[in-house]
Design a binder for these strands. Structure first.
Length: 298
DNA sequence: ATGGTTGGCATCCAA
């Protein structure tokens, strides 16, 4: 009898106010989200539909596949959102949309000035209750995996680029963590963290999204002190954020969970909820990804 | 084992 029982680390956490929602008890919460839209030119209607129904206060977008000057800004701004883009022609490209002003915007992942790929954007938003630094990222896919005979990635190959990019990411995150303020790092990580994050893990075993070196690099980043918001709220398998367009993958729920929201300790203390909007995939002309969102007491 | 789908841009590459 008696003795102190350690809390079960797998129990979903609840906010300090229990399960307070937006607007209740005078608490103002911020809804932040990430959505790989797979091309703004093709996704305008679906993106607008989701922004209008989900009403995120801030969302990071990936694969806008557009330059900054060809992005259809009015789509976003007409809904009352501010917009900052970091685009390139044809591929990649990230953006932040926000109802609050976006301050101290930076573009590009530091660490390699010769890297032309647009995959990283940062901004700060402030409420009466405090400020939040936000990173929007599109982590390299890394396929095909090309290895030397000894198993090291072929220099100049896509897999080597992925691992080098993650090392640069880790270095930048160390700098951001030193700011000692709430930080949310979210986007398309192109990483399947665990076996339960794929419907058919065996099919991904040697893929750049799941092979051990990729997951180790992701663990290294998590172990800097981040909380993975979705896993802090929901355990078990069957929750995915991406389904291939081919072979009816969505209908069979043959998906993977690769879009993530990582929170530093200051932000994790504010976490109220985190969900994946899988219904979005059932809409007209959907992206192959769906949005993930978190609610913060901020 | 193969082909299956989508987006952007150019007649193929990335996913």
């Amino acid at each position: 009898m008696g003795g102190v029982r350690a809390p079960d680390p797998l129990l979903p956490i609840t906010g300090r106010n229990g399960s307070v929602r937006r607007g209740k008890n005078g608490a103002r919460h911020m809804k932040i989200a990430s959505f790989n839209i797979n091309g703004i030119k093709a996704r305008g209607p679906a993106l607008v539909r989701w922004l209008e129904s989900a009403q995120p206060d801030l969302a990071v977008l990936q694969e806008i596949k557009s330059t900054d000057d060809t992005f259809p800004r009015a789509l976003i701004e007409d809904l009352g959102y501010n917009l900052e883009t970091h685009g390139q022609k044809g591929f990649n490209g990230v953006a932040i949309v926000s109802k609050l002003p976006l301050e101290d915007v930076t573009r590009g992942l530091p660490g390699d000035d010769s890297d032309p790929q647009a995959r990283w954007i940062e901004a700060t938003v402030s409420t009466e209750q405090g400020a939040l630094r936000v990173v929007g990222l599109y982590l390299p896919n890394g396929n095909p995996v090309e290895l030397e005979g000894d198993g090291t990635p072929v220099a100049g190959g896509k897999y080597a680029y992925k691992l080098a990019w993650m090392a640069r990411m880790e270095a930048r995150l160390r700098e951001l963590l030193a700011l000692e303020m709430p930080l949310a790092v979210m986007g398309d990580y192109n990483i399947i963290p665990q076996t339960e994050d794929a419907a058919r893990p065996d099919a991904w075993r040697d893929d750049a999204l799941f092979r051990l070196p990729s997951r180790k690099a992701y663990r290294r980043i998590l172990n800097l002190g981040f909380t993975e918001a979705f896993r802090a709220r929901t355990q078990g398998g069957g929750h995915y954020s991406f389904w291939d367009y081919q072979a009816g993958a969505f209908e069979r729920n043959d998906g993977i969970r690769i879009d993530h929201i990582l929170l530093n300790a200051y932000a994790a203390d504010l976490l109220q909820d985190c969900r994946i909007d899988s219904d979005v995939r059932a809409g007209e002309k959907p992206s192959d990804h769906v949005p993930i969102w978190a609610e913060l007491a901020l």
